[in-house]
Amino acid sequence: MRVVPWLACFVTHVWTVNANVEKTVFLAPGPATLPDAHPGLDTLRLATLSPALRPVLPTVLSVQFPSDSAPRGLESWYLLRGLEEGRRYEVRICWPATQPTDFWLDTFTLTHVWATPKLIVSLAKYSQQQQQQQHARGSVDSSVDQEETLGTSQSTLFLRIQAAASFFSSNHTLMEHPPPVDADIILDPFILNVLPRSLAPFAAYISVVAVGAWLLSGYVYRWLLSHAVEAPAKPHTD
């Protein structure tokens, strides 16, 4: 009966060794009409995650060490689209343990961002940097949504990721210019608002193993009990 806890512990430690994970959980808001004020979503050129079309986004995030002006490092912005109103979702970022980094994830509604000067300035700054980088490369990031149209009513959120390098090195170049971090951003809907969808196969496997172990242990116990009762007594010699 100790197989299940041992297996769960083993899988957890394997995941911990291979990568770090940070996440945020939220409920999808109701559909909102995308504002046509500048900057509109069609001009932001943000990478988009969608539960149905693009639940996983491999990316490379620039980082910097915390400072007085940026205590949580650099900010990156993304769009979460195609959400189901009232459904619970989890957004998590996974990155190699060999790249020590602190991440903070926050989600904001469209109206909240447009009504908050600090957020809209950060969003516009990031969008401008992305467009400049794409123009310098002479290409457009394939992860950027090309089908955004104004006036479309749907459940949409902004995702802000703050990334700060969290290591120390005697290499002055690394301390001044920490390398970018390879990461996967994952949008994971919950099943019945209880369990993340990506964990469903593992939960089903654990349930099958637990039930099988319980049934097997009962059978073994009855078999041992029956043999103990039916064991013949030793013959006595006069």
Rank of each mutant, 00 (worst) to 15 (best):
R2F: 10
V3F: 14
L7Y: 04
A8N: 12
C9N: 14
H13C: 15
V14E: 06
W15G: 04
W15V: 00
V21G: 05
E22D: 11
F26Q: 04
P31E: 10
A37S: 15
G40N: 13
D42Q: 12
L49Y: 05
L57F: 07
P58Y: 07
T59L: 13
L61F: 08
S62I: 07
S69P: 01
P71F: 03
L74W: 07
S76P: 05
G86C: 00
E90C: 10
V91Q: 04
V91T: 02
P100C: 04
T101F: 06
F103W: 05
L105K: 03
D106H: 13
F108D: 01
F108Q: 01
L110W: 01
W114K: 11
W114M: 07
V121I: 06
Q128M: 13
Q129A: 15
G138C: 06
G138R: 09
G138S: 08
V140Y: 12
S143T: 06
V144N: 11
F158S: 05
A164H: 05
S166R: 06
H172W: 08
T173F: 14
L174E: 14
L174A: 14
L174W: 14
E176S: 15
P178V: 11
D188I: 01
P189D: 01
P189V: 12
N193W: 00
P196L: 07
S198D: 14
A200M: 09
P201N: 08
A210L: 09
V211F: 08
W214N: 02
L216M: 05
Y219P: 00
Y221G: 03
Y221H: 07
R222H: 08
R222N: 12
P232V: 03
K234N: 07
D238H: 06
